[in-house]
Structure formats: C-alpha cells, structure tokens
C-alpha cells in the first residue's frame, strides 16, 4: 500500500478542549497547543498520517484528511 499523502489537518476549534492528548502522543511532534489552548498542526510537513491523534481525540475534534 502506498504511503498516505496528507491533505489537511481538519481541526474543529469549537470542539477542541485543549487536553493535549494528541500533542503528547503524536509520534512526529507535529501538533502544538496555541495561545488559546487549541490544537494546531505546527509542523504539518512531518505528519506521517498515522491518525493516532484522530483515534485518541476525546472530542472528535481532529481529523487527518489524506489524498
């Protein structure tokens, strides 16, 4: 299977509560919390589309869109 290619980190800022679970467990350190404690993809080019953030998000607030 070809490597999935990242299209976008779709983040629902209304739903994100800034718990930091996705930031903590991201294997490539792609995610960060911004000054409002909402997740942002600070280093999106490092994303390997493993989707662990999406699977572990308690708020269904992050989705990895692939091509």
């Amino acid at each position: 299977m070809a490597k999935p290619k990242l299209k976008a980190h779709v983040i629902n800022r209304e739903w994100c509560k800034g718990c930091g679970i996705c930031v903590h467990f991201c294997p490539k350190n792609v995610l960060e919390l911004d000054e409002e404690d909402k997740v942002v993809a600070a280093r999106r080019e490092d994303c390997i589309c493993c989707k662990m953030c999406e699977l572990r998000c308690p708020d269904l607030a992050i989705e990895i869109e692939t091509e």
Partner: peptide, 8 residues
C-alpha cells in the same frame, strides 16, 4: 471534561 477518557 478536557481529556476525559469517555470521549475516547
């Protein structure tokens, strides 16, 4: 709450 496991 933020980080609650129930959401997971």
């Amino acid at each position: 709450c933020p980080g609650c496991g129930h959401g997971i």
